[in-house]
C-alpha cells in the first residue's frame, strides 16, 4: 500500500537556487581560455573544486561552434569544475546549449543580481564615551554616538554613523555594503574612515579639522570639512 502511493507520487521537486560560478567566456581559443581559467582558479583553488558553473557566452554575437564549445567544457572539467548550464543571448546560443547537453539559463536570471540590502531604519544610540579597545557594532542600524570615540576604539554600523563629539578612532559605515551612508562627526581626528568597504587612513585625509562629513562619491571616499 505504502509502496503504491510512493510510486504514484513520483519525485517531489523542490525549487532551489544553487550557488554557482559564472564564467564569462571571452575567447574561443582553448589555450587562452585554459590560461585565464587557471589564473582565476589559482586565486582560490578551494572555491572552485568540484564547483558547479555556468558558462556565459554573451560576449559572442554568433553561435559558437559545437566542437569549440565542447573543447572549452573539457578544459573546465580538467580544472575540476562542473559546467552544467550555458547563458547568453537566447536567440543565438540556446541551440548550442542543447547540442552540448547543457541546461539553459536566461541571461537575466544568470546575471549576478545586486543583493537587495535591507533598508536601515533603526538607530543605536550610545551616550558614553567609546574608549580605546572598545568596539561598537550597530547591526542593521545607524549609529548615533552622543560622546567621543577615542583613538584605538572602533565604531561600526550597517547604516550611518554620527558622532557628536571628537572622532579619534576608526569609523566603519555601511559595513554590509550599503554605499549610500555617511560618517558625520563634530571633530574629525579619525584614524580611519570606511564606507561600504572603501577606506581612507588618517595619513591620506585631506587637510582640515573640525566638523566633517564623509561619504562615497563613485567609489571614492570624500571627506568634506564643514567649518
Amino acid at each position: 500500500m505504502n509502496q503504491a502511493i510512493r510510486q504514484e507520487q513520483g519525485l517531489k521537486l523542490r525549487g532551489r537556487l544553487v550557488a554557482s560560478h559564472q564564467l564569462p567566456v571571452t575567447t574561443t581559443d582553448p589555450d587562452t581560455f585554459g590560461h585565464q581559467l587557471s589564473l582565476t582558479i589559482n586565486k582560490a583553488p578551494a572555491l572552485f573544486k568540484q564547483a558547479p558553473c555556468v558558462l556565459d557566452v554573451s560576449a559572442f554575437n554568433e553561435a559558437i561552434e559545437i566542437d569549440t564549445l565542447s573543447r572549452l567544457l573539457d578544459i573546465c572539467r580538467k580544472h575540476q569544475l562542473i559546467p552544467f548550464a550555458l547563458t547568453g543571448e537566447k536567440k543565438i546560443h540556446l541551440d548550442c546549449a542543447a547540442a552540448v547537453n547543457l541546461a539553459w539559463l536566461d541571461l537575466k536570471a544568470g546575471q549576478p543580481k545586486k543583493e537587495k540590502l535591507a533598508p536601515i531604519e533603526d538607530t543605536m544610540v550610545i551616550t558614553t564615551p567609546v574608549r580605546s579597545g572598545q568596539q561598537i557594532y550597530a547591526k542593521n542600524a545607524n549609529l548615533l554616538i552622543m560622546n567621543q570615540v577615542s583613538a584605538g576604539a572602533e565604531v561600526v554600523a550597517d547604516g550611518n554613523i554620527h558622532v557628536f563629539g571628537a572622532l579619534r578612532g576608526r569609523a566603519i559605515a555601511g559595513a554590509c555594503g550599503q554605499p549610500n551612508v555617511e560618517v558625520v562627526c563634530q571633530q574629525m581626528l579619525a584614524e580611519l574612515i570606511a564606507i561600504a568597504g572603501t577606506y581612507v587612513v588618517q595619513e591620506d585625509f585631506p587637510a582640515g579639522s573640525g566638523p566633517a562629513r564623509c561619504r562615497l562619491d563613485q567609489d571614492s571616499l570624500v571627506i568634506d570639512y564643514l567649518a
Binding site: 558614553t128 564615551p129 567609546v130 574608549r131 580605546s132 579597545g133 572598545q134 577615542s150 583613538a151 584605538g152 576604539a153
Partner: peptide
C-alpha cells in the same frame, strides 16, 4: 593617556557595576 583611556573603557564595561547595571 592612551592606556588610561583603555582602562576607562574597562571600568565602564567590565566592572561589577557595569556588569550589574548599577551606577557607573
Amino acid at each position: 593617556v592612551r592606556d588610561s583611556d583603555r582602562i576607562l573603557g574597562i571600568l565602564q564595561s567590565k566592572s561589577y557595576r557595569a556588569e550589574n547595571n548599577q551606577a557607573p
